[in-house]
């Protein structure tokens, strides 16, 4: 719920580096010049920052987001619009069944009457329930913490939609045409926010973080103590939605 709560949350994440990651890290360090390896901090940063097209993602990085709800303007849906635009989510005029990766939610504290507006999407949990229930392995978590649907093997059973406590996933009910080249979408599969994974792979930020006119979304690497996100999280009090479920979402909210 607050800073003290967040600190122990983050601790196990940075400690949980598997053998694979350690091996990769040492390989990379060995590959880099010996001079650099003498400065561990510097090397760490470089490993987490740079990824060329032929390199696999590493669990040195964990992508996350901080959403400042005090900045998030009521009635503004810039993030949702930019998401729909960038990922080719077109409406069929049936809001009940149209796919949505991101939505605006308005919550009201009944006792004080305070109204808060916030964007809601896949929270990219460390322990995603959607992955647990998937019968085919289509729902999976990348090493860098991004939770995705492999639509090649998704059978459209929608168990993951039931399992997600954030209602973050959508089922594609209708035939899709003219998809964006980087965001393939098709009838009969489940989909959700991808953290704009095609952009992440190229070292860019998700479109919602860029498109927010209020600058309420801060995106970054939770594992890198020097990232702007980690620094901000250290300063301000933030919370995870349904922290009681201990899913450790990568998306955190400030001012809720």
């Amino acid at each position: 719920m607050n800073q003290q709560h967040s600190a122990p949350d983050m601790q196990p994440e940075s400690m949980q580096l598997g053998d694979h990651a350690r091996r990769q890290f040492f390989l990379k360090v060995a590959g880099a010049s010996a001079g650099l390896a003498l400065v561990p901090g510097l090397v760490l940063q470089q490993v987490s920052a740079a990824k060329t097209a032929d390199q696999p993602v590493s669990n040195k990085v964990r992508w996350g987001m901080l959403i400042d709800t005090s900045k998030c303007a009521q009635g503004c849906d810039d993030c949702v619009k930019s998401c729909n635009e960038a990922n080719g989510l077109t409406s069929h005029g049936r809001p009940a069944s149209d796919a949505q990766w991101m939505r605006k939610v308005t919550v009201k504290d009944k006792q004080t009457g305070k109204v808060t507006s916030l964007p809601m999407m896949c929270q990219h949990c460390e322990h995603p329930p959607c992955v647990d229930v998937c019968p085919t392995g289509a729902s999976f978590k990348r090493d860098n913490g991004v939770v995705l649907v492999d639509k090649h093997i998704c059978i459209g059973c929608r168990y993951c939609m039931m399992a997600c406590p954030y209602k973050a996933r959508s089922f594609v009910h209708e035939t899709v045409e003219n998809q964006k080249p980087h965001a393939p979408r098709g009838k009969g599969t489940v989909e959700s926010c991808t953290f704009c994974v095609h952009k992440l792979d190229q070292g860019e930020q998700p479109v919602c973080a860029v498109g927010c006119s209020q600058e309420a979304i801060l995106f970054g690497d939770l594992n890198d103590p020097e990232s702007a996100l980690s620094k901000r999280l250290k300063e301000v009090s933030s919370m995870q939605l349904r922290a009681d479920m201990e899913l450790n979402p990568g998306v955190r909210y400030q001012g809720l």
Binding site: A53, P56, V57, N144, H152, L200, D201
Partner: peptide
């Protein structure tokens, strides 16, 4: 290429469907 891109984020262009198209 599909599995490498999907799971590991490897986006080399040599054998990608996008480049075929």
């Amino acid at each position: 290429q599909r599995d490498e891109t999907m799971h590991q984020g490897i986006r080399t262009t040599k054998h990608s469907l996008l480049e075929c198209i």
